[in-house]
């Protein structure tokens, strides 16, 4: 299987580089926001930017397996960083919602969470991401064994909740939202057909080996 062009010894450095690069959009957005570069409604723009990058990293993380299966491109070394970046952006998105958007007025926030399906979906996504982030270390992977894989399947409902949260917050589904809905359908859809696909591939390999 084709691996990444980066030699193994540089791989840790490239993962750290991914973290650093991944945080740039958020930091740059914050910088723009401070200096009035986010347009007429900077709070909304910044909140939206953080949410959108969370969704992007979530999708990128879920692209690793199909890339390996279908195109033989192995980027597995970067999957944890992508997942954690998504988590950091979700946390920042939530923090901006609580503080800059809602001004920490708890009654309004509680009402929002209890009454608004799109807020509930966002909250569900955040809560489901927490155990995944907590068990993203090597020690947990070893300790949990096969259960780790089971647990991390939670990322699929997280993606569905995230994209619904996004779509339901809009007045109409614009082209950008339509794009992420399509990406979600493809990424989740692939997981549904993947077991069959893998089985067929195994059977073919067996047949070749027997010949």
């Amino acid at each position: 299987m084709a691996s990444l062009a980066i030699p193994t010894r540089y791989r840790p450095a490239s993962v750290w580089a991914l973290y650093a690069i991944g945080l740039i959009p958020g930091l740059y957005g914050f910088y723009l926001g401070i200096f009035g570069g986010l347009g007429a409604d900077p709070v909304r723009a910044f909140e939206h930017l953080l949410g959108l990058w969370a969704l992007r990293f979530l999708c990128l993380g879920l692209l690793i397996t199909p890339l390996r299966d279908l195109f033989g491109v192995n980027l597995m070394a970067y999957r944890r960083a992508l997942g954690l970046l998504a988590f950091y952006y979700v946390l920042a998105h939530f923090a901006v919602y609580l503080t800059l958007d809602r001004g920490l007025i708890l009654s309004s926030i509680a009402g929002d969470i209890l009454k608004r399906p799109y807020i509930m979906l966002g909250m569900a996504g955040l809560l489901l991401l927490i155990p995944l982030a907590l068990t993203s270390n090597q020690w947990s992977i070893r300790r949990l064994g096969p259960k780790w894989n089971q647990l991390h399947k939670l990322v699929y409902p997280v993606l569905i909740a995230a994209v619904l949260h996004y779509a339901l917050s809009l007045k109409v589904i614009d082209p950008e939202a339509a794009f992420y809905i399509a990406v979600t359908i493809i990424l989740i859809g692939y997981r549904l057909i993947r077991p069959k696909l893998m089985e067929r591939r195994r059977a073919r390999r067996m047949a070749t080996a027997q010949r």
Binding site: G33, L38, P42, V43, L100, G103, I105
Partner: peptide
Amino acid sequence: AEGLFGGAR
């Protein structure tokens, strides 16, 4: 709001 801050609802 002044940038990101002070734009209370």
